[in-house]
């Protein structure tokens, strides 16, 4: 095949001279982690709120929550990202739009990516939260109310703590997804892991090493997140119930 393997390439100084190629990869890695974690915070908070609203006995609130979920679930992530990045600044009041466009490009890319990933994932989190709440025995809600709890108290003390535990395993997979989906943000020029991989191919002419390294980095993220979430699951397990001993 005549391909010259050269794993040492990662330790060579990069084309811009101020770093090694390994340093480039590490920068991309940090960007992927930072972006995914900050988007995850948004996704969890909004997703929990919207998911709960979908189960409340109020047609208007539940309807708004449903519309929210359908909107973010039925448009491809890439299209949503481009809309956040290219369209929204144009639709904002001029001063605000200009302020966005004049900010640092990396900041623009990061901000659009974070909001986009966060909202996209929040719709999925909301679905999991809703189905967690709906899978609780109906009597639990009645039992809470019968003890004199108000509806919000019943959610807070009775339904949500249990629904939360049921929802952790499916949320783990959404959490993994957010890291994987963050690769889409390379398309607007954000230098996260996948984008750095592409850059490495261009600059080093060692495509195999570059892509294998990036792919392994994603696998490593996956393994670490899964291990941590399993530990977490065991910690919150309820004695005598699913997962508990």
């Amino acid at each position: 095949m005549g391909y010259q393997w050269n794993w040492g390439v990662f330790f060579q100084p990069s084309a811009t001279g101020d770093d090694t190629y390994l340093g480039w990869m590490f920068a991309g890695f940090k960007m992927t982690i930072g972006l995914s974690l900050s988007a995850w915070v948004i996704a969890l908070l909004l997703g929990a709120l919207v998911g709960v609203l979908r189960t409340v006995p109020n047609k208007l609130l539940a309807g708004i929550a449903t519309a929210y979920v359908e909107l973010f679930r039925n448009i491809p992530l890439l299209v949503q990202l481009f809309i956040w990045y290219f369209v929204l600044p144009e639709l904002l009041p001029e001063s605000l739009g200009n302020a966005f466009k004049q900010s640092h490009p990396v900041l623009q890319q990061f901000f659009a990516s974070m909001v986009c990933l966060g909202l996209f994932t929040s719709a999925r989190v909301a679905e999991q939260v809703r189905s967690g709440i709906n899978s609780l025995p109906k009597g639990q809600k009645n039992a809470g109310l019968a003890l004199g709890f108000t509806l919000p108290q019943t959610y807070r003390f009775v339904m949500l703590p249990m629904a939360f535990r049921l929802v952790v395993p499916p949320l783990t997979s959404e959490f993994l997804n957010i890291f994987k989906n963050s690769a889409v943000c390379s398309t607007i020029g954000l230098l996260e892991l996948a984008a750095q991989g592409r850059q490495l191919v261009d600059y080093t002419a060692q495509p195999y090493e570059s892509f294998i390294a990036v792919t392994l980095a994603y696998i490593a993220i996956n393994v670490v997140v899964m291990t941590l979430m399993h530990k977490f699951e065991r910690r919150i397990a309820v004695p005598g119930y699913i997962g508990g001993k």
Binding site: P137, G139, Q140, N142, A143, G144, L145, A146, L147, G148, F157, V158, P161, M162, V238, G240, Y241
Partner: peptide
């Protein structure tokens, strides 16, 4: 409801 006690068919203790 706080003054009326109720016991359910499926116990409904909080797991």
């Amino acid at each position: 409801r706080a003054r009326v006690g109720m016991v359910f068919q499926n116990f409904e203790l909080f797991p």
